[in-house]
């Protein structure tokens, strides 16, 4: 890969008191690829995701992000104001539970418009038109624009959360178990949607999941975490079909066959 990476993390380390969050994590994400991060609960996946997205400060290490304008910045070295501005324009974060990523007290339209308004949009009609466009892109009827997301089903809420994140056309999206807690048919539709949007928009993403099926379907490269370290990485198909590490072998062989 001689292409320039969009996100580069070096030696990321985070401890919670005497507990290890993650240890010496190095990774790179290239334009238009989805990088999967798998491992059991407590292996440090979410810690890494929070460190990469700037939501958590590392004890040591750096996260370099190439902005749309071409400049490279360290997410943890820039000012709070700049970090927040980048987080709501060039980055996206899809939570496992949509309640954490949505504002349930305002309508679906307002949820989508929020990033635009924070970014300086001062026309009601333009913001609303974009909200309608994105609601339709995630297969929600425009007639439900002014409804509050409390009335939405779990799958719809997750799709709304995706629309909310993508409305500013971010370059990089962090996906934290985006299909967790949804039933399989809804999962399948959501995965289709994510694949289509990724292909259409040329998105890069970091996908945290414990579902190897989801990882195989979405990600091109895969990293396996255990006890805060990355123990194996490679092309998704290689890692899943020919796991090298004993733990990865265990993980792959533990998957239930239908």
């Amino acid at each position: 890969m001689n292409e320039k990476s969009i996100l580069k993390a070096q030696n990321l380390t985070k401890n919670y008191g005497s507990q290890v969050g993650c240890l010496g994590v190095d990774l790179e994400v290239y334009p238009s690829e989805i990088l999967g991060l798998v491992g059991e609960s407590g292996s440090g996946k979410t810690t890494v995701l929070n460190l990469l997205s700037g939501r958590l400060k590392p004890d040591c290490g750096s996260v370099l992000y190439s902005m749309a304008c071409g400049d490279q910045i360290d997410i943890h070295a820039i000012s709070e104001a700049k970090r927040r501005a980048i987080s709501r324009s060039e980055l996206g974060f899809v939570h496992q539970n949509p309640v954490n990523g949505l504002n349930l007290n305002v309508s679906a339209g307002a949820n989508i418009a929020e990033r635009l308004l924070s970014g300086g949009e001062r026309s009601y009609h333009r913001a609303r038109a974009k909200a309608i466009k994105w609601l339709e892109k995630v297969e929600i009827s425009a007639s439900r624009l002014d409804e509050k997301p409390e009335n939405y089903s779990g799958g719809m809420r997750q799709r709304l959360q995706i629309a909310k994140n993508l409305v500013t056309e971010p370059k990089l999206v962090f996906l934290d178990e985006p299909t967790g807690g949804l039933d399989v048919s809804v999962q399948a539709r959501l995965l289709d949607l994510l694949r289509r949007l990724q292909a259409d928009l040329g998105l890069s993403a970091i996908l945290v999941t414990h579902d190897l099926g989801v990882a195989r379907l979405l990600s091109q490269r895969l990293m396996v975490m255990k006890d805060g370290r990355i123990i194996e990485s490679g092309l998704t198909d290689r890692v899943l079909d020919d796991p090298q590490q004993p733990y990865t072998q265990l993980l792959v062989s533990s998957t239930l066959e239908v």
Partner: peptide, 18 residues
């Protein structure tokens, strides 16, 4: 401190929608 008043516009957006 950061002069982030997007929330204010969110309230206005919601008012106009409703």
């Amino acid at each position: 401190a950061l002069k982030e008043y997007g929330l204010m516009y969110l309230k206005l957006y919601e008012d106009i929608s409703v």
